[in-house]
């Protein structure tokens, strides 16, 4: 290899010619390189530029916004929704109330696994329909086990319940010690005073660390731009809950806070045909959930991971199995990979 050095020294008198040639070669190379770079980046022409405005880039974190900031952000979002879905939404930033801590209780003896909660949730919370994002996953469990690995996710029968199984719906447990909040590098997700773990969809960078951290597989990621038909959009929205999301951010169950913080029940509860779902304020000793936690055989899923869920499962020995005998058709489950 050393010989090349001698060669180029010996051609010293031809250096001028050489540099002219190398200049030509260099400019040709630069032009070719620029063209290749432009070609490589050409898919970016399809990028939705409305998603990448200076205003959005400079938008503050939820907790740092003044009421005025929030108003202008809400206005902007209303405009975006109107433009896209031709509906002026009832969009609010609805805050947690003092003296309220929400808790969910689910009666495993009653649930028949019909998945009506799954779909009521999708409609209420403006999840993408294509690909469909579902917050609730119902497991069909063999009797005698609470090991989720024994459960079936994609069960499909003419009618449910199947007498040899029981059904266990799983959604965000709004843990008091939430691993998803702990791992988020940028505080895009946090726990509110009423116990609901929320996400600022305008702050999330989409690293999916929270999704890896959740022991209940409760979080969902928008792998592509969510699609909802205009007529299916629910116009009753809150900033931290069911306003339309964008590609590349995380979402999950938030106990329908646009409803529950306004005194209503969650959509999954209202639709349940067998009354398996109970929801309320645990700080109120007279509430139904307080009574259930006090009097029934209650347990939480995966207690060993120490997340302190606010979502309880219970059995009720006063309620004999299969009292509810009328079978119902089952609705489809979510994606299975």
């Amino acid at each position: 290899m050393k010989s090349v050095a001698d060669q180029s020294n010996s051609t010293g008198e031809g250096r001028d010619r050489l540099s002219r040639r190398s200049f030509l070669r260099g400019s040709l190379g630069a032009a070719g390189g620029a063209a290749a770079l432009a070609a490589a980046l050409s898919p970016l022409r399809m990028l939705d530029t409305e998603d990448y405005t200076v205003e959005k880039f400079l938008q503050k974190h939820y907790k740092e916004m003044s009421p005025g900031d929030m108003d202008s952000v809400l206005d902007r979002i209303r405009g975006e929704v109107e433009k896209r879905y031709a509906i002026r939404p009832e969009l609010r930033d609805i805050k947690a109330q003092d003296g309220v801590e929400f808790v969910y209780a689910l009666h495993l003896g009653r649930c028949i696994g019909c998945r009506r909660c799954v779909h009521a949730c999708v409609q209420e919370n403006n999840q993408s329909r294509s690909p469909e994002i579902q917050y609730i996953r119902v497991l069909e469990m063999p009797k005698g086990s609470i090991d989720v690995e024994q459960g079936r996710h994609d069960y499909d029968r003419p009618t449910v319940p199947d007498p040899d199984h029981y059904y266990m719906p799983v959604q965000c447990h709004q843990c008091a010690n939430p691993p998803c909040v702990k791992v988020c590098p940028i505080e895009a997700t946090w726990q509110e005073q009423d116990g609901i773990v929320v996400i600022d969809y305008d702050w999330c960078i989409g690293c999916r660390y929270c999704e890896a951290a959740c022991p209940y597989w409760a979080r969902r990621f928008n792998f592509t731009e969510p699609k909802i038909a205009r007529e299916e959009l629910n116009p009753n929205m809150a900033y931290l809950s069911n306003r339309p999301r964008k590609q590349g951010v995380m979402e999950k169950c938030h106990f329908c806070l646009q409803r529950t913080r306004a005194g209503q029940m969650p959509a999954c509860l209202e639709v349940c045909p067998v009354g398996a779902r109970k929801f309320g304020n645990i700080l109120d000793p007279e509430s139904e959930v307080s009574q259930i936690l006090k009097n029934k055989h209650v347990f939480v899923l995966k207690q060993e991971v120490g997340t302190l869920p606010r979502f309880f499962y219970y059995f009720d020995e006063d309620y004999p199995r299969n009292t509810f005998n009328k079978p119902l058709p089952v609705l489809p489950g979510g994606s299975h990979g």
């Binding site: 980046l41 898919p43 970016l44 399809m46 990028l47 990621f221 592509t224 731009e225 590349g248």
Partner: peptide
């Protein structure tokens, strides 16, 4: 660039 446009899908 394609991933940026269509997402991580």
């Amino acid at each position: 660039a394609k991933q940026l446009v269509y997402g991580l899908v």
